[in-house]
Design a protein around this nucleic acid. Structure first.
Lengths: 224, 224
DNA sequence: CGATATCTGGACCGATCAGTCCTGAAAGGA
DNA sequence: TCCTTTCAGGACTGATCGGTCCAGATATCG
């Protein structure tokens, strides 16, 4: 077995760690016929299916139809349904985090950023958009209790959202924009719960004006 | 066809409506061997299974084990899996509404009631309790988009919660307990989203003190 | 008693599930 | 050209799905 000797050899991501140094193993040039489909595009299609139907209600034929892959290609590329699901979930999370990083960017005026961030949630939780729901929330409810890999990702996402919102609130506070007694990290937790609750209530396709007014009313409890 | 004549006869729930009057049809005494298990208890057991695993991940053998019924008895009593699920969901909703009616009872001091109501949610969304999740939220995410019967119930529950919370807030406002500019119906929508979001975030089993502090912080934005 | 309805327990149904394997063609590098 | 890999498409596996049906026992009625 590699790495079993006294030299304490370890391999990770094509890096060999030995004697405190690391050596890069060059990527082997691919042999045989190259893959002819875009894996990221396939993950995105699969994500759409899981998003609409949930994990258990999604059957292999649904994924094959959406990705336009044969059974053989899909299993060769992604392993199994669960692995593909995790990749889809990761993609969903990465998209959401990227969006937040734009909306709540440090260079932006923080209250404007928070307004934009909330407006995005209002948009995605009203009417037909709302009815579609949220892959992350659905996954949290369906799988997080039983699936440690999923639970890790869900917890990580909420943490990521909370820190970004808390950051924006801290900057707002520093600029004197927050109401008296508003503490950024506590208010961030409130806002995280609120937007995730919006996703749940959004399943009943509430009218957009209502959701927008509700989000406005909450934000205005925090700002001066 | 009954009721097709000029007499405009209609039957509903063993009541015959005719000529503006209603006649009660006596309940027929049951024939044959009486049912020997408690249907409500069976629904409650089934509810527990759906609650823990979700609709699609719950298989018939799970329900048979939990209810201690034979396949034949279960199908004879409840029809099919979906009907049993709806009864379980109705039971879950009825329990939740009953709890709210106690916590937010009109005779009670409204702010105390809101505090108790929030404390209940904190309790159910922290630690191990939180990890268990919420049948209603899980159902909303898993089925409401595809199942009109479920969607009706989910929307009805949110409405019921919103009106009760708005009522309590109105009473608090009348008593001069609300902060300036807090509008009961808008604040109620905020609180509904917040507690449903708690249920989602609760899936990551957050520490109780954090959830409690967050709920307190939100409520204290509304009260004077 | 006879009719009716439920009980337990299991056999059985067709459909579908996730996943494996195969064939024969095609596409790249050596 | 040869080797390797992916391609499409489908056959196939064993397991499980929700649901039906049956036999024989049992309980309560008229």
């Amino acid at each position: 077995m590699i790495g079993d000797g006294a030299a304490a050899l370890a391999i990770k991501d094509r890096l060999v760690y030995i004697y405190g140094m690391s050596l890069q193993i060059p990527e082997k040039p691919p042999r045989g016929r190259p893959r002819s489909f875009d894996m990221e595009a396939a993950v995105e299609r699969a994500m759409g299916v899981f998003w609409s139907r949930g994990y258990h209600a999604t059957a292999l034929p649904d994924l094959l139809r959406a990705t336009k892959l044969s059974r053989g290609s899909l299993y060769a590329a992604f392993g199994d349904k669960h692995s593909l699901f995790l990749r889809a979930l990761d993609r969903y999370i990465a998209d959401a985090v990227t969006r937040m990083d734009i909306e709540l960017a440090p260079r932006r005026e923080p209250v404007d950023g928070l307004r934009a961030w909330l407006a995005g949630y209002v948009d995605r939780t009203s009417g037909a958009h709302g009815r579609r729901g949220c892959l992350l929330v659905a996954t949290a409810m369906e799988l997080a209790g039983q699936d440690a890999e999923v639970a890790r990702r869900v917890a990580g996402f909420f943490k990521a959202m909370e820190t970004r919102v808390a950051d924006a609130l801290s900057r707002a506070k520093a600029a004197g924009k927050l109401a008296d007694g508003v503490e950024p990290s506590g208010a961030a937790r409130i806002l995280v719960c609120f937007v995730e609750g919006l996703r749940v209530v959004g399943k009943t396709a509430p009218p957009r004006v209502t959701s927008q007014a509700t989000a406005d009313a909450l934000l205005y409890r925090f700002i001066r």
